[in-house]
Amino acid sequence: MTGDDRDAGSGLAERRGLDEAVVYQPAEDSGLLAEAALEEAHGRVLEVGTGSGWVAQQIAEERGLDTVGSDLNPHAARQARERGVEGVVADLLSPYRADAFDTVCFNPPYLPTDPDNEWGDWMEHALSGGESGRELIEPFLDDVGRVLAPGGVVLLLVSSLTGYDEVLALVEDAGFAAEPVVEESFPFETLTVLALRRA
């Protein structure tokens, strides 16, 4: 959205401005996850940590699939809803039923962060993966098998900054086989979207 779209002074415009300031907006990683999701998604779809809701919107519009955009951040759930996605405020997978989704997408907060330098706001929740960079990937992988329907697929974005081999080991421990769907290298990191299926 550009500044011209805003009706300055109205409550809605102010709220939108705030939402954008505290919600992770689409970037290279989002584009890569969307590309993989458009290829692999089927059935009922959940995007965890949906942020702006952009990836979920691509899946809903391009593939015509029922898509839920879930985020810890209520500003993010609101942005997802404004994009026509079903927005839910939730902690990872905790309020979803067993076997509920055929496709689960997750672009986790993955930057390894020194605990002394954490900044304690919504943008930190969106970016920081704790000291290892894997603080949210671990509980996600522990629980995703529960909500995934038989024949379902998980699309997980992994950065080389988070430790590709370490994430693969966690994926195997969780009972999944991983297959790279798309990969792209940037000056400071390589991003890969893995498709996980029950081993």
Binding site: L72, R81, V89, A90
Partner: peptide, 17 residues
């Protein structure tokens, strides 16, 4: 509220709102 269910566990809800 505003069409969005808040399904955070109660101990996380206060902080998130």
């Amino acid at each position: 509220e505003d069409g969005i269910p808040n399904l955070l566990p109660p101990d996380m809800r206060e902080e998130a709102m």
